[in-house]
Amino acid sequence: MRDKSQLLSQIHPARDILSISSHVVHGKVGNDAIQFPLNTRHWNVDCIHTTNLSNHPGYKQFKGSKSSPALIESLFEGVRDIKLQYDAAIVGYVASKDILETIYQKILLQLAEDTIVVVDPIMGDNGRLYVEEALVVLYKEIFSDERCENLIDLVTPNQFEMEMLTDIKISDLDTLKDAIRLFFKLYKVKHVVVTSVNFEDSDGMLCIGAKSDGEMYTVSVPKIDAVFSGSGDLFLGILTDRFVKSNGDLAGSLKHTVSVVHKVLEITYELGIDQPPKRYVDGKPYVPALRLVESRRFLQEDYIVKCGVTTDTTFL
């Protein structure tokens, strides 16, 4: 029998994260897009599911249910009773105003002070709102709450969600900067990442990171000609990993995350696109499930992805 003590030298210690998002049996969205990449990056991922669906609505039909606020609250009580502490917490898809209220009051406000909290205010995309209006209002209330100042470390809206949060239509770099300035004026959050910004006249997609002290980073990445479900959730997980492990190096975290997500989308496109595509969304082929398992080599934290990413640091 081989000497097992050698095993210990190869073991990488794990950190603990609480991830509150949706669950689907089939598909890679919500917690199912977060768990595997973060496990791969040495995180124990404690998932509180806000839904229990057969698949996500992108397939046009699904069965299952949303979790009730009472269930979500009791699941957290259960882990609190056994005295768990988390290094980080993620809030992703929350499904309704009542659930967000519960998550904020009963979970986020109860976390240890040094837990890094990242919130993706999922509301919609490409000009379409897919949650109730009241949820948008509640996100605004929470982000402007005094108690939020030392609680939520990073918020990751997409372009549409940033528009909803600031009521500014983002059409070019100037309006984007206006929106970010207003965001920091209105909300008690120190970091924001606008995950996908498309301007009409540009070929690439921009990801923007900004800090309340005025620093702003722009990462540009080539567009892939398809629409994917779950890419925002994958982005959220990877960004949180980098942000925590780099002690808040937003520029580096952003560049790394954009590269990894881009690589996963490329692999998903290669493996997953039907020829000819079965469905189109906004005139582009639709790919309902990310190929996360097949992309695992590129999900490793030390994997350096070389793709067309440029970073540029400016001030607001």
């Binding site: 049996v25 057969s54 039909q61 069965k63 249910s65």
Partner: peptide
């Protein structure tokens, strides 16, 4: 509840 999830999977 379990049957419904299966039915959802059958549906797709």
């Amino acid at each position: 509840e379990i049957e419904q999830l299966f039915e959802g999977l059958e549906g797709i």
